[in-house]
Design a protein around this nucleic acid. Structure first.
Length: 288
DNA sequence: CTAGGATCCTGTCAGC
DNA sequence: TGCTGACAGGATCCTA
């Protein structure tokens, strides 16, 4: 579930805790969640490719982590409970006693910290790959550019190549444009006033430009505030800051008034995904 | 090549 | 209470 802004926030946050620390043990509770042979080593740095997080070690190997729908990374420094850093799919696990039923992998550091990889649905994984082969990984290799790196012209041309697909399905495809997930796709389409069921081939150059800019803006805004959908530091009182409630204009706001025009936001199904629209701002047929 | 649907897995919630 | 189906912030695999 974490989308690009969440993974970027995780990357930045986790970097502060684990860089230069020595990974010394790996406990695997679910074989499906860990691919390859566990390794030890000192953390050199953290990178991100789309929604995939890479932890580079000083021994030529890297950990690729993809949280998919329900993955979480929870770092416990082993000292103060209030210092826990939790990110990913929001749930009680952030503050729960760990490990628990959903803990799939535990990484322990020599200095005392513990990184828990929790994942309710087991779609996510940690994979060991040689550092110099990360860019050749089948997932990484297929990723398209992120919205900030793509020109309006290139985005428009890519949409034209998938002219018979719904625009929402098209922008969710990481090989067409990278980083958007179900939340930011809905938010970007709303911001650009484009109905998610429009055929990608019907999107004009002007609309493509607006959509690309909107994608950048909604994700920029989210990154700037630490990921729209995750809490960062778990407070001592255990409260969860659900920033999504403040951030989202349409996502999970069905039956509420559109913040732009006041019409009632609807939830529909597009490309097999729950989709939120303002039926007034986002019209399927071209305005006339 | 594109487009659409099923699928991986666990958990929760609405409805009967 | 118990059952059943729908659904969930992702990506891949299979089919046409």
């Amino acid at each position: 579930m974490p989308e690009l802004p969440e993974v970027e926030t995780i990357r930045r946050g986790l970097s502060k805790f684990i860089i230069k620390k020595q990974l010394v043990s790996t406990e695997i509770f679910c074989d499906k969640s860990f691919i390859g042979k566990p390794v030890g080593g000192i953390v050199k740095g953290l990178r991100r490719f789309g929604k995939a997080l890479i932890i580079d070690l000083n021994n030529g190997t890297s950990l690729m982590i993809h949280l998919r729908m329900t993955g979480q990374l929870i770092y416990d420094p082993g000292t103060e409970k209030s210092q826990r850093y939790a990110a990913g799919h929001p749930s009680e696990n952030f503050t729960a006693k760990l490990p628990n039923k959903q803990t799939r992998v535990i990484l322990k550091f020599k200095e005392g910290g513990t990184l828990y990889f929790n994942d309710q649905r087991k779609f996510g994984f940690i994979k060991i790959i040689p550092t110099n082969e990360v860019v050749n990984d089948s997932f990484v290799r297929k990723l398209a550019k992120e919205p900030w790196d793509m020109t309006e012209q290139e985005f428009y041309e890519r949409l034209q190549r998938h002219q018979n697909s719904n625009i929402k399905a098209t922008i969710l495809d990481q090989t067409i444009i990278c980083g958007l997930g179900n939340i930011y796709a809905d938010e970007a389409l709303f911001a650009a006033k484009i109905h998610p069921e429009r055929k990608s081939g019907s999107i004009t150059k002007q609309e493509a430009k607006l959509l690309l800019q909107s994608a950048r803006e909604v994700m920029d805004k989210s990154i700037a505030s630490g990921g729209s959908t995750m809490q960062t530091y778990v407070k001592a009182d255990g409260t969860k800051g659900d920033y999504l409630e403040l951030f989202a204009q349409v996502f999970r706001r069905e039956n509420q008034p559109c913040p732009r025009c006041g019409a009632t936001i609807q939830k529909i199904k597009v490309a097999g995904r729950g989709t939120h629209i303002c039926p007034n701002c986002q019209r399927k047929s071209s305005k006339k």
